[in-house]
Write a protein that binds this DNA or RNA. Sequence first.
RNA 1: GGCGUCGUGGCCAAAGUGGUUAAGGCACCGGGCUUUCACCUCGGAAAUUAGGGGUUCGAAUCCCCUCGACGUCACCA
Length: 490
Amino acid sequence: MSTEVRVRIAPSPTGNLHLGTARTALYNYLYAKRHNGKFIFRLEDTDNERSDEKYTKDIIDGLKWLGLTWDEGCDIGGPYPPYRQTEKIDHYERIADKLLQNGFAYLCYASTEELAALKEEQRVSGLPSRYDNRGREVSIEQREKYQAEGRVPSFRFRVEEPQDIHWDDEIKGPITVNSADLGGDMVIIKSNGVATYNFAVVVDDIDMQMTNVLRGEDHIHNTAKQLLLFEALNCKPPHFGHTGLIFDSNDRKLSKREHGELVHIDYYKTQGYMPEAIVNYLIKTSWTPPDDTMEKFTLEEACQMFDIKRVSKTHARFDMDKLNWYNSHYLRSLPLSTVTERARPYLTDFDLSEYSHDELEKLVDTLRGSLTKLSEIKAAGSFFFGKTVEVSDEMKSTVLSSSEAKKVLTETLSSISKMPFDDPAGVKQIVDSMGKELGIKGKNLYWPLRAALAGSTQGPDLGSMISVLGPTKVQARLEAALKNGGNGHV
RNA sequence: GGCGUCGUGGCCAAAGUGGUUAAGGCACCGGGCUUUCACCUCGGAAAUUAGGGGUUCGAAUCCCCUCGACGUCACCA
């Protein structure tokens, strides 16, 4: 019986959901689905200084918004609980104790000050900074002395060096790191009794029987350290794969500090990006489908096609233009009902009861073709709301004041009863044939109508506009324009 | 600085184990469609595959060197 594939996303709740975390989660999800495996959500919250419940919520909400669901996790449980590291602090210490008894680890009494001094010494002499393993051989007397001083020890794991550590990376291929470059014996239990990241991860990955670990390449050295831990704990390590990081156009890693809210999924959510667009974009940044000319695909399709061998080894470049391109695509191709529901929160300034459910869908439909993100719908569609619309004085004098314009408006007003309001093309035809009768066409025909109805000479298709506005609004606006139009006087 | 990873048009990127004119997408430019913008559609411009050496009849693909970018060197994760 072959073992089931088990992968995870293991964020730490020290900030809102990051684009990079979302991308890593996506790849793990894809890998799990492709191999009929399990996707696990584990919370790595051992840094109680920076962790916060509000971040946990943001991360979970963001991932779910993208359409990622997990089979086991801190919010839904599973067969290998707990899925939250702070709930198994004692467990880590027990495992560390075992390592202590086996001689793989020892108690280190070095103080923060001593370690800082060591680091400074190394810096001054131009040496790479590392722990010098001085705590390995401490006499009984010395230890008693430290304890009498009130020093609280940390647990350090012995890193035997030199020693080549290598693995066949699922993305990068063979990688070798020498244990001598790992910074010396590593702390596994901090003096506050809490496991360090590298130790907790290994214990958890063993407990939860992870088979594959896909993460950013900033973890390459951690992987080497963790491999040593797996060995000491006598457990088979998972397969590792490291993706390149995400950079901006200046080769700067995407970070909160440099890019602000742009690195958070939440930003895109509030700006009105479609999760389908973000997912498609994020997957495509460093993965190529088997059909390498394929640009647009859904998460489900990607699950079927995914092949880790086609994940790029290089850095991904964040390209807002491309994301916007994807988003405008999804904005106009997603089911109208979906887009309409998602548009509602951006239209709260208006009285939505002016339109029925179906009418609102038509309204959104006429607008969505010109948007790159949903937040723009408020400005683009404001003219649809209210009995009348604001027309600038300039618009009045340049577009509405001529006698020709007035003729167009008057004539349209009297054609309202003939207009098939549920048929945009039919409405347009009426307008055109009316223009023909009047001998007015092009700008001279359309602009006065646009100005009177929407307050702008640009916008969606005229027939659709009139169709959506409906007879009552059209009449009111034409009348208002005729009455106040000329010179901007009321 | 040590160690590690990566380096194809402005940007992303394809090219199973080396083989005719180095895909495709974004952005850009032009035509068509439209009253206009956008969409859509057609077309265009844009790469001595970081640079230099090799191996080979032949290399983006293999080897060596150089350069560059990034990552990592915590009792943070």
